[in-house]
Design a binder for these strands. Structure first.
Ligand SMILES: [Mn+2]
Ligand SMILES: [Mn+2]
Ligand SMILES: [Zn+2]
Ligand SMILES: [Zn+2]
Lengths: 138, 138
DNA sequence: TTTTATTTGAGAAGGTTTATCATCTGGTAT
DNA sequence: ATACCAGATGATAAACCTTCTCAAATAAAA
């Protein structure tokens, strides 16, 4: 694991964190790469992966393992839940209260030492809900 | 999408479903492949992927998009929750009541048309909890 | 300024999943 | 029972995402 103290403040790291903090879209590593490249055209994709991983390990950011193929990243580290649109794959925050209690319920219902949970809602974003509705009319 | 009616009952499909139904381990496609190959040594990995995907589409089985790199499959289609061991990656069922109500809470807290949710608990399985404890003693 | 351990960028490699396509087969019609 | 054929299979290539490797670059300490 990476020590927070021995982590250099490189330009790449700063800009990756800055760009991730600008958005609420839970971008994939590749999307972060595209964002960062506008400011640092010579950055490597590996550097983006490496640093997102490192920042997630040290708790500076969150690595979301939501449905879909790619991992997504989130600068909002406070516990919260997500929705994913089944149509377009967009991921948004759900601003509802965190269900702290269910960890205990789960602990009682299993042999695991429960350390946390995450909830992913699935559905249709407003854009896709209307266009899907349109399609069913046509 | 695949029509249930036009789906042939091939030996491969039957055995894939049978083998998946035998276990509660939420195997990856590769693990299903290994299980099935004992009975059908000439089956292709592509066939396993293709049919797991198809069965998931038609609702015969569940495709779990839990944390970790690989997708996992589940013959138990009734709604239920999962725990994943942070140490060894094992996935188990959590036999607790499904929180139907939170879908409405989420719907009120967002612009999405909420269709469902899934909860993934994280923690340590009994094996890993003890060995991690051992390690911290040594 | 010099030193050095860490980090970077480029590219290769790895692992998982999907696509392609000639061949095969389950289900149906004859 | 036999012929037929849309759908399925197996082999393999390709796509895709992520991690690894290592010489060169650089942040930070001396
Ligand atoms: Mn978020
Ligand atoms: Mn299950
Ligand atoms: Zn959408
Ligand atoms: Zn474990």
């Amino acid at each position: 694991m990476q020590e927070l103290t021995s982590m250099r403040l490189t330009t790449q790291r700063q800009i990756i964190l800055e760009e991730l903090s600008k958005v609420t879209s839970h971008p994939t590593a590749n999307e972060v790469y595209d964002m960062v490249r506008r400011r640092l055209p010579r950055i490597g994709l590996g550097t983006v992966y490496r640093n997102l991983e490192l920042m997630a390990e040290t708790g500076m950011i969150l690595k979301l393992e939501v449905g879909g193929t790619q991992k997504r990243f989130d600068a909002t580290v406070a516990p919260h839940y997500h929705v994913r649109c089944l149509e377009c794959g967009k991921v948004d925050d759900i601003k509802m209260q965190v269900q702290h209690n269910i960890n205990e319920t789960a602990a009682q219902a299993s042999q695991y030492q429960i350390l946390g949970h995450h909830i992913e809602f699935t559905g249709l974003c407003s854009d896709c809900a209307t266009s899907t509705h349109q399609a069913s009319i046509n």
